[in-house]
Design a protein around this nucleic acid. Structure first.
Length: 296
DNA sequence: ACCCGTGTTCGCTG
DNA sequence: TCAGCGAACACGGG
């Protein structure tokens, strides 16, 4: 369940579970090699066995683990769409779709579960995370570093894409995903179809606060401090507009939440109270479709 | 059967 | 040259 808040939750879990004991053994699913690329499951197992987790950091949706007990070594974990770290105590059966398992001293096992195989788990030699291009491209973490509205305005001003699509670009505010992009636009009262480079400085500032607010809301639901609050699935939808197509807008109560598709992803918004009554930019694909239709 | 999905990468196009 | 777009990856759930 991975956008920034869920990855933060995973980081807290891993700290609580893995910072003490050594990793005695590692198993990997041979049918999941794509997760371990450009390395391999066998290389991952060899690299981790006998070490212990010294620290767990998070940058956007990436988990950065440093391992002690040998030369410097890092482990980079990205949860993709369906990745999740779960712990099983001795005697408990593993969940389905386990792609890697770390057997800890004492018998607990950390399982990396990922049905769709969109995640990544790779060894970082020397723990030199800063050398990885996919991390170097990311902006500062919006929670750890805060959001600089001047920087945000500069980056948004550089693209003509719809603002909600631009928010999914991890170079801008790493950790924002499809849910929180819709939620942030709604909180900021900005039509998600507006061109990113046409937002006023005030609107960008509102958007920055909207991102912060939707993240803070999700993070507070995780439970504070040491205790790991289990977020059970199948509960109430905790979001303001996400997956609420057809429901009455919780702010203006006048219109129904709409679902549209942008960049092949669902977007939810209130057509009445999303400001930006200023006409949203026509998408390039819609323009092409009209041009093609008018040609007959 | 069909559609949808909390993410990223790659190749094509204008 | 490059921003933007859409397919692809892979599998479960409604």
């Amino acid at each position: 369940m991975p956008e920034l808040p869920e990855v933060e939750h995973a980081a807290r879990c891993l700290r609580a579970w893995a910072l003490s004991g050594r990793i005695l053994a590692v198993e990997t699913d041979p049918r999941a090699e794509r997760i371990f690329r450009p390395g391999s499951g066998a290389a991952l197992a060899r690299a981790l066995a006998g070490r212990r987790v010294a620290s767990v950091r998070r940058l956007g949706k990436h988990l950065l683990l440093e391992l002690a007990g040998g030369g410097p070594l890092g482990l980079l974990s990205h949860l993709g769409m369906t990745g999740k770290w779960v712990r099983r105590l001795p005697g408990e059966p593993p969940p389905s779709h386990v792609r890697a398992s770390l057997v800890l001293e004492g018998g607990a096992v950390l399982h990396y579960r990922d049905p769709r195989l969109f995640g990544r788990l790779r060894v970082v030699p020397g723990a030199r995370f800063e050398l990885l291009p996919e991390l170097g491209a990311l902006g500062p973490d919006p929670i750890a570093a805060g959001i600089d509205p001047v920087r945000l305005a500069a980056l948004l001003g550089r693209t003509r894409r719809p603002v909600k699509v631009a928010l999914l670009d991890q170079r801008i505010l790493p950790g924002v995903g499809n849910i929180h992009a819709s939620e942030a636009c709604f909180r900021a009262r900005i039509d998600p179809r507006r061109r990113a480079d046409r937002l006023s400085p005030g609107e960008v500032a509102r958007l920055a606060r909207g991102v912060r607010a939707t993240f803070d809301r999700a993070l507070s639901a995780l439970g504070a401090g040491e205790e790991i609050a289990y977020v059970e699935e199948g509960g109430e939808n905790p979001f303001l507009v996400y997956a609420r197509a057809g429901e009455r807008c919780p702010r203006c109560r006048r219109a129904a939440i709409r679902r549209i598709v942008q960049a092949q992803r669902s977007t939810y918004f209130c057509p009445a109270c999303a400001a930006g009554a200023a006409r949203p930019a026509a998408s390039a694909s819609a323009s092409r479709a009209r041009a093609s239709a008018s040609r007959g």
